[in-house]
Computed example of a mutant assay.
Amino acid sequence: MNTSRLAPLLLLPAAALLVSGCSAAAGDTASESTGIRVVSSTNVYGSIASAIGGEHVDVTSIITSAAQDPHSYEASAQDQLVISKADLVIENGGGYDPFIDALVDAAGADDLEMVNVVDLSGLAPVDEADSADEHGAEEHGADEEHSAGDGHGHVEGLNEHVWYDLATADALASTLAHVFSQLDKENASTFAENYTAFSEDIAELTASTDALATEFDGAGVAITEPVPLYLLEASGLVNITPEEFSSAIEEGADVSPASLRDTLAVFETSDVALLAYNEQTSSPQTEQVRAAAEQNSVPVVSFAETLPDGEDYVSWMAENITAITDVLRS
């Protein structure tokens, strides 16, 4: 089946307040949909869809818990059901949530709208792009990178945690406003207004990271995984963690003794502003790294891959930036 490409993103004009939308886990899907039916791989993207669609979308997020790993998640019959009823599906892409591709392929819906966030981000290495279309769905963004990657399906050279890139969140919101307007022309002005409000919030967050970059440009940061690295780099921080260590942790592979030794030594031999710790992937090796940071008076800042309870995307990113700021300015 063929997949068509989206024309350049439309930045939809308007000004008004942000409207929160309906959102549910896959198992809590309402039997009767009252709006555009959106399925997102994680609640991070579900939050953005709700912000743009407001009461005119019904959002179901498949991954909603810190205990669920998108890399190894096994889709259920309920997940397949919600995909089969969806008008639009949002996937991260880049090998992060491959279960979405399997569900969409099984659904076989030619009129399903697809949004691939890695493709929208433009952050994937250009030479990884594959020109073959994989789904019969209408896919928004460039073609996904299916060629080279590691055993987990990741795109080599890509940090696929693109929701920590604020410009990517804005691009996704713009795309959703455009697609929602195509699916529900009657409420196009509301989607435009909601996008404008969301984009203004993103601009404020970006101004905060820009200020940090000006003040702390070049400060060293250690990580257990590259999950929040886009946000850290936007704040002027430079990752000084041995790549072999963070890559092994991310892939669930064995950490070599030499790699662990080199990582622990970073806290004794380098000036480290903070350790960014992924709470959703903890292991004896990451705990050793945390202990080394604490022993050397390096602050530990926790990050996650899913939206915490009671937060939306903007408030969550604001809290992350505040945590970074508090440490850097302490």
Rank of each mutant, 00 (worst) to 15 (best):
N2S: 09
S4D: 01
L10S: 15
L11I: 15
L11W: 12
L11C: 14
L12M: 15
A14M: 03
A16E: 12
L18V: 02
S20G: 09
A24I: 06
A25T: 11
S33F: 13
T34R: 15
R37N: 14
V38F: 10
V38S: 04
V39N: 00
S41T: 10
S41Q: 13
T42C: 07
N43G: 10
Y45D: 10
G46E: 02
I48V: 13
I48K: 03
A49F: 09
S50L: 01
A51D: 15
V59H: 11
I62W: 04
A66R: 06
A66W: 02
A67L: 02
A67M: 02
D69Q: 01
H71M: 04
E74D: 05
A75W: 12
S76R: 13
Q80N: 14
Q80I: 15
V82M: 13
I83D: 14
S84W: 05
K85D: 11
L88R: 09
E91D: 11
D105K: 13
A107N: 05
G108M: 12
G108H: 10
A109I: 15
D110F: 00
V117L: 03
V117N: 00
S121P: 07
P125C: 12
D127F: 12
S131N: 09
D133H: 05
E134V: 14
G136L: 12
G149H: 15
H152V: 06
H152C: 13
H152W: 08
H152D: 15
H154W: 14
G157C: 14
H161A: 04
H161L: 03
H161M: 04
T168L: 08
A169L: 11
L172N: 08
F180V: 00
Q182T: 13
L183R: 09
D184V: 01
E186S: 04
N187R: 01
A188C: 04
S189L: 05
A192H: 09
F198E: 06
F198I: 12
F198H: 03
S199P: 05
D201Y: 03
A203M: 04
E204V: 08
L205G: 14
T206F: 06
A207R: 09
A207L: 09
S208G: 00
L212C: 02
A213C: 04
E215P: 12
E215F: 01
E215W: 13
F216W: 05
G220F: 11
G220R: 05
I223L: 10
T224Y: 10
L229G: 05
E233H: 07
E233S: 10
A234S: 14
I240L: 15
P242T: 12
S246N: 02
S247V: 05
A248K: 07
E251Y: 01
A253R: 08
S259N: 09
R261L: 10
T263C: 03
L274T: 00
E279V: 00
E279A: 13
Q280C: 11
Q280D: 15
T281V: 07
V289C: 11
A291R: 15
A292M: 13
A292F: 03
A292H: 10
A293H: 03
N296I: 04
N296K: 12
S297A: 13
V300S: 01
S302E: 08
T306Y: 03
P308T: 04
E311N: 11
A318F: 01
A318C: 10
A318Q: 10
A318H: 11
E319H: 05
E319G: 11
N320S: 03
N320E: 02
T322I: 06
L328H: 11
S330F: 03
S330N: 12
